[in-house]
Design a protein around this nucleic acid. Structure first.
Length: 257
DNA sequence: ATGGTAGCAAAGCTA
């Protein structure tokens, strides 16, 4: 079973690229982030020929997440257990195949210390509480998405970022993500590639970042223990980042038995 | 410290 996650930075702008990638790679599941469209405006019909079931949670202009799966998606939720619906569409979860899956778009946070940064930390805390709730159920579970956090040394092109308050790399946000990992979730890519070499998933559009490989690893797939037992492979598909008019992110993929 | 680019949507916000 092949599961992928991809922040596409507008599904409308990336429609042909996403279709071509699905056709070529044929993942069983694709978790999408940054749709930048309303739920009703998601171009489902563009994928008709590929036979994916879809669960979409969108909004106007910003954010938006979705699950595409070869098997039907059941019991879809877009809120964290026991919490109010976030007006920003950043989370969707459902049962498909034989496991529970989620697509998440963690707030960027803009600048350490800003209001948006506080919102980011709050979101990660709420996500942690929700994932703790799921963990107790002992069902195989995978959550993929843009976490907007580089969790380990080596997850940014310049290690000096970790000594600074650079967004994506600051201590408070790394600790917030580590609290989730410490619940018992595993970082699938790191499990397969312990040295974290050449695994960046995002390159800024600016300053020729991709050409200079000035990247960060901020897109992740986290697995519950039961799902981790089935992990066979994990990799970053760098190809879509070299497309014409690419997303600034590239897909992360895992293979589960 | 600033600006470098991209998408949405129609000027500025978010990333």
């Amino acid at each position: 079973m092949l599961i992928a996650t991809w922040n596409v930075n507008s599904i409308q702008a990336r429609l042909e690229q996403v279709h071509a990638w699905l056709k070529e790679v044929q993942p069983d599941v694709l978790l999408l982030q940054e749709l930048k469209c309303m739920t009703e405006a998601f171009p489902q019909e563009a994928f008709d020929d590929l036979n994916y079931n879809m669960a979409v949670h969108g909004q106007k202009t910003y954010n938006g997440v979705a699950i595409l799966s070869k098997t039907p998606i059941e019991d879809v939720v877009t809120t964290f257990a026991g919490q109010e619906e976030d007006p920003q569409a950043r989370y969707i979860e459902g049962f498909t195949g034989n496991l529970r899956l989620a697509s998440v778009y963690v707030p960027n946070g803009q600048e350490v210390g800003s209001d948006k940064f506080e919102y980011k930390l709050g979101f990660l805390k709420n996500l942690k509480n929700h994932l703790q709730d799921i963990f107790y159920q002992e069902t195989p579970f995978a959550i993929g998405g843009d976490f907007n956090v580089a969790p380990f040394d080596g997850d940014a092109y310049d290690p000096r970022f970790f000594k600074s308050n650079h967004i994506l790399c600051s201590l408070p946000e790394r600790k917030a993500l580590r609290e989730i990992l410490n619940l018992g979730y595993g970082d699938a890519l790191r499990m397969i590639h312990p040295k974290l070499e050449n695994l960046f998933t995002w390159w800024d559009y600016r300053a020729a970042s991709f050409q200079n490989d000035h990247g960060f690893r901020i897109d992740h797939i986290l697995l519950s223990g039961h799902a981790m037992d089935r992990l066979e492979d994990a990799f970053v598909d760098k190809n879509p980042r070299s497309n014409e008019r690419p997303s600034d992110h590239t897909p992360v993929c895992i293979k589960l038995r």
